[in-house]
């Protein structure tokens, strides 16, 4: 089964937590992605820019409403996604528990429903 690991955590800038902490975080994510890849379960991995760079679009009364900022203004923001292909939820939870950001945020584990491949939506 395919699962997307959605990494939510409070955003912190380099000024707030220091260069060292940022670098340690990057090293931890590098090692995490390496071990997912080595296990052959990694399908994609993206770490997102801060939500301050986010723009949100809605269609309201026939008009596009474009708003600066993220979809929800919460303390914890979506910071990255990892798509993994593993046998079951328990395996996905094991990987989620090893994500570096579990110690400062939360990892949501969401199963895939369908995927668009070769011009058609297909079961995951």
């Amino acid at each position: 089964m395919r699962y997307t690991l959605l990494l939510h955590y409070p955003e912190a800038s380099e000024e707030e937590i220091g260069r060292e902490a940022i670098e340690a975080g990057m090293a931890a994510f590098r090692a995490y992605a390496d071990s997912l890849d080595a296990a052959g379960v990694l399908r994609s991995a993206e770490v997102l820019q801060p939500s301050s760079a986010s723009t949100t679009v809605r269609l309201r009364d026939g008009e596009l409403a474009i708003q600066d900022g993220p979809f929800a203004d919460t303390k914890e923001q979506l910071g990255g996604t990892f798509v993994v292909d593993v046998p079951d939820l328990d395996a996905a939870l094991d990987w989620a528990g090893r994500a570096p950001s579990v110690s400062w945020g939360a990892v949501e584990v969401r199963p895939c429903a369908v995927r668009y491949i070769d011009g058609a939506w297909q079961p995951a």
Binding site: M1, Y3, D88, L89, D90, A92, P111
Partner: peptide
């Protein structure tokens, strides 16, 4: 079923 919980003894 949907979350894919493992049917094995841990």
């Amino acid at each position: 079923r949907d979350a894919g919980i493992r049917f094995e003894v841990p």
